[in-house]
Amino acid sequence: MHFEVPKAKKFKEFGGEYVMIVISILTALALEQGFEAMHHRHLAHEASAKMNAELRRTIKEVDAALEHNEKKRQQLHQARDQLLAGIRAKTDDAELMQRFKKEWAEMMRLDLDTPTLHREAWEAAVANQAVTWLPREALENYAGAYGAIRDTSTYTYSGALMFLDAPRLLDIFSKAEMGTATPQEIYQLAARMVAAYDNLDNNLASLNKVLKTVVAENDSGHAGKSGS
């Protein structure tokens, strides 16, 4: 910033030039703050657009996973229930294992869809501090959405794997191929698989409900600003 030292000899002229210098300095500072505020608003708007797009993409992928898993989940429930009915009816083990090979083995093939839960846009907005310039309500919405994504990634996926017990699953399928597995072992395996699908899908459905609410609230907020 550059300014000249007043050259006037009279006090009145000096005072006038001094006032002009002060006004120039204040104007320059105001312009600088204005440009900075504009830059911050641009960062916040850009971050918001990217996060909204990312959340919509995650919602779409979770919806697809839920649709895929639901078909498999229904098959697993059917196989488990039919097997349990046979066990309770004291059907011969050999007959039940024949039905497993012909009817239930394909239904019990593990095909669990675990969609990627994206956080890249949020992490970028945190890194460049764009989130600090978001309106408080929008920031709380995004923080809630991405917090739910983090928790689902951490606990839900690990929980599904815990229900499955992969080594045990492989052991029973191996025994079934060798002809040494029992209907009771197959039922226990089916119960584990059903629990894994139920746990995963219930949590994914809850997550999507949160994400859809946040996106809808952000859209309504943007629409309100556009109309004002």
Rank of each mutant, 00 (worst) to 15 (best):
L189E: 04
L96D: 10
A195C: 01
R99D: 07
A89P: 03
Q33K: 15
E140M: 05
L200R: 01
Q82D: 09
M51C: 12
E103C: 11
A64P: 00
R57K: 12
I172R: 04
L76C: 09
A47K: 03
T114Q: 11
R168S: 00
A94T: 13
S228D: 14
F3T: 15
K12A: 05
L204A: 05
G144H: 02
I25C: 14
I25A: 14
E17S: 13
A216F: 00
S226K: 12
I25H: 13
V62S: 04
L134W: 14
P183K: 00
F11C: 02
T91M: 12
Y146G: 03
D111L: 02
A65C: 10
F163P: 02
A127Y: 10
A47D: 01
E185S: 07
L207D: 03
T180C: 03
T152A: 02
D171V: 05
E217T: 10
S226C: 05
P183Q: 02
I21S: 10
F11H: 03
S206I: 03
H222C: 03
T156Y: 00
L55N: 02
H222G: 00
D93W: 04
L169H: 04
L96Q: 13
T58P: 01
D198V: 01
K102Y: 09
T114V: 07
I21T: 15
F35G: 14
K7S: 15
V5N: 14
L169F: 06
